[in-house]
Nucleic acid binder design. Structure first.
Length: 435
RNA sequence: CGGGGUGUAGCUCAGUAUGGUUAGAGUACUUGGUUUGGGACCAAGGGGCCGAAGGUUCGAGUCCUUUCACCCCGACCA
């Protein structure tokens, strides 16, 4: 991509309503813009990041044997009445009427629709297990949307549902999804913890949350210093007052608070703030029973499916990555999430030698399938550099003054190191670096 | 859903207490010139139904009524 032709509207000033750093940088960097309370447009850079995350989620799920589907976003109200959730979900469901005055709901989640899809199509134990997922828009009419993409009303979520003939098999799949989720978040380059959680309104027995560690996180979790154990504080403290008191504390205050309990491994426990980006539940037969979704077992008897459900906040991840990876200058994308891996910064576009080298490198990297953008705008060095840091490309190749000495620089966004390289070796050097 | 606040140029905001020339600044944008390694400088331009509707008045960005939108604190929450 040529920066001079790209739609990447960056700004120096931050909109007054953005409080979180991820929100400010995503708007200033031209990734997203606000369309209304809890509603966001994804501009080209935002869309690229979103699709990269989506692709990683899909890749790992497909490897684990899941199949992708796409359910209708608009669902008939009757579906929610049959499961008894029309009242439970309450005002979070955005209800609309069609021209015949029939009631519909914009999907806040899809347990019901997925059960209806599978019911009477999967009828034998021989067809089980089955794990279906979709990556689709959700709408929850939150009482108070905030924090940009972290708590929108409309958002992109991966929701998966598995069907089993026995509880044991369902638990096996639950464990497989835990491992799959770990692979997804690891690939995205995130520092995260898997924690024991309450199952909340969705119901069921076993439940685990995946939290991206970030000081600005809304949830408070307890993690062990020595082993992998982690838990949502809801599972550790009984009293509601104690839980909300902890949630209100800032990250700094939490670090001072000591926990007298020890982990079962003997390690020290400490508090962290986290952003919930994934949640997996063992549902059991709650929905299959309510919706009379049965299969025939080995003896020909009808039994309700054992089910589990698995969610990942895909659009929330866009913001979570930046909450965890930023500095005062802007975004620092991880390698798997970056909108472009390499930004070629031609310092002075009136200098023919700089332009020639920039173009040559651009073509070479493109030919090697590197995601590359060339900043060929007429602006000055400082302007382009600030822009590159705000957007957060992992590498910027600076072609400028030093070219007369036969040198260019590779700027590493994460470490802020500037490495000088011989100009005639830069192509090979970049390909080496990106291996 | 309670409490508080804000709507004026693409963005950040003055102007509203006390109604009165043609509604302002910075930034962004256009053109010309000078610059060219950390968000440059000079000059000239374009850009506004002052959130919307109604009212008071000779006259409303400013006063009154209604309404919509957005933000913050709380309650709630995948």
């Amino acid at each position: 991509m040529r920066r001079s032709r790209a739609f990447i509207p960056t700004t120096k000033e931050s909109p007054s309503d953005a409080t979180l750093l991820s929100h400010q940088f995503l708007i200033r960097g031209g990734f997203i813009n606000s369309q209304g309370a809890g509603l966001y447009n994804f501009m080209p850079l935002g869309k690229i990041v979103l699709e990269k995350i989506r692709a990683i989620v899909k890749d790992e799920l497909d490897r684990a044997g899941c199949m992708e589907v796409q359910l209708s976003f608009v669902t008939p109200m009757g579906l929610w009445e049959r499961s008894g959730r029309a009242d439970a979900m309450g005002k979070e469901m955005l209800c609309i009427k069609d021209r015949h005055q029939n009631d519909f709901v914009l999907s806040p989640t899809n347990e019901e629709a997925m059960v209806e899809l599978v019911k009477n199509r999967v009828t034998s134990y021989k067809d089980l297990p089955l794990n279906l997922y979709q990556i689709n828009t959700k709408f929850r009419d939150e009482a108070r949307p905030r924090y940009g993409l972290l708590r929108g009303r409309e958002f992109l979520m991966k929701d998966g549902y598995s069907f089993h003939s026995s509880k044991e098999d369902m638990v096996r799949e639950f464990d497989l999804m835990e491992e799959t989720y770990k692979k997804i978040f690891t690939r995205l380059g995130l520092d995260f913890r898997v924690v024991e959680a309450d199952s909340g309104a969705i119901g069921g027995e076993g439940s685990k949350e995946f939290h991206v560690l970030a000081n600005s996180g809304e949830d408070t979790i307890v993690v062990c210093q020595s082993c992998a154990y982690g838990a949502n504080i809801e599972t550790i403290f009984e009293s509601e007052d104690e839980i909300s008191a902890l949630n209100e504390k800032s990250y700094e205050e939490l670090q001072l608070k000591k926990l007298d309990k020890k982990c079962s491994c003997g390690g020290e426990l400490s508090f962290k703030k986290g952003i919930e980006v994934g949640h997996i539940f063992q549902l059991g037969t709650r929905y299959s029973q309510a919706l009379e979704a049965n299969f025939s077992d080995e003896n020909g008897r009808a039994k309700p499916f054992e089910m589990a459900t698995f969610g990942i906040g895909v659009s929330r991840l866009v913001a979570a990555i930046i909450e965890q990876n930023n500095d005062e200058n802007g975004c620092i994308w991880t390698k798997e999430s970056a909108p472009y891996m390499v930004n070629i910064l031609v310092s002075n576009v009136k200098d023919e030698a700089q332009v020639a080298l920039g173009e040559e490198l651009y073509e070479k990297l493109k030919a090697s399938h590197v995601e590359v953008i060339i900043d060929d705008r007429k602006d000055r060095f400082g302007f382009k550099m600030k822009d590159a840091e705000l957007i957060g490309f992992p590498y910027t190749v600076i072609i400028g003054k030093e070219l007369q000495n036969g040198l260019v620089q590779i700027y590493d966004r994460k470490t802020a190191d500037n490495t000088s390289v011989n100009a005639d070796e830069i192509g090979a050097k970049m390909l080496e670096l990106l291996k």
